[in-house]
Amino acid sequence: MALIDIHHLFHSFYRYNESGEVAGTKEALRDVTLSIEAGTFVAVLGHNGSGKSTLAKHINALFLPSKGQVLVDGRDTKDAANVLLIRREAGMVFQNPDNQMIANVVEEEVAFGPENIGVPTEEIWERVADSLERVGMTAYRMHSPDRLSGGQKQRVAIAGIVSMKPQCIILDEPTAMLDPVGRREVLRTLHELNEKEKITILLITHHMDETIDADRVIVMDDGEVVLDDVPREVFAHVDELRSRGLDVPVPTQLAYELKKRGLELPEGILSEEEFVDAYMKLCK
């Protein structure tokens, strides 16, 4: 059985006028069917408003289907008795970390999750120290989350989820405000958690280059899943991705432009190293 199973999921947002009548409807998800195996690293791409955050909130049981079904480890999100278990298993790092900081000190902020799920005290502090180390925020242990920079907050939020050791972590644009080195560190952290601890990762991002090492890339457009494949296949659709508001990594774009102008480069170049290797062959 897959860890996450989504069947024909629909989600509508309604807007009401003063007299309580429906004044507008937005179908944010339309007939989404997906299944994600435990241990996979999945990246989700899609234009602004395509439904990525809405989908993530369904997996975390924050939203319930207007129609269709979401199962996390076999548990239906619609059954209220499952909600806490589901949130423990599928931890979520939200799009804006500002909204999820509640404690006065970074350390407490990170301890909050494990405390809530009843981890013994000594182990909590071990986990807190370990997760802060993983995101490079040990030095800020005693700082107030309010006073951190945008990127620092983002890392603390990730540590807060990592400390709960969930089966699956859903991250909604976790690197949007990080500097290049910070982004690389977070990506490395996520891949490590995925490889060593077999944590399933669902990474929502607008940075194409962050997805090239994923097992799978899902592309959403206007509430629907329109591409779902390994990165090499997805990024072969350069024109289609552009028409859907997206892009391809820089090395892929260079190879695409050079091929259009007659150079013989192989298909499926994603990383800078791959590009350099392929280009070297033309210079021999």
């Binding site: 500097d179 080195v181 910070g182 820089v250 260079l254 800078e272 190293e273 350099v276 280009y279």
Partner: peptide
């Protein structure tokens, strides 16, 4: 200092290192 250079600049520097 936590930053880097654009992807294209990195690619040219790798190519130069390899003698192109």
């Amino acid at each position: 200092i936590g930053l880097g250079v654009p992807s294209t600049v990195r690619i040219f520097s790798m190519l130069r290192e390899r003698g192109v």
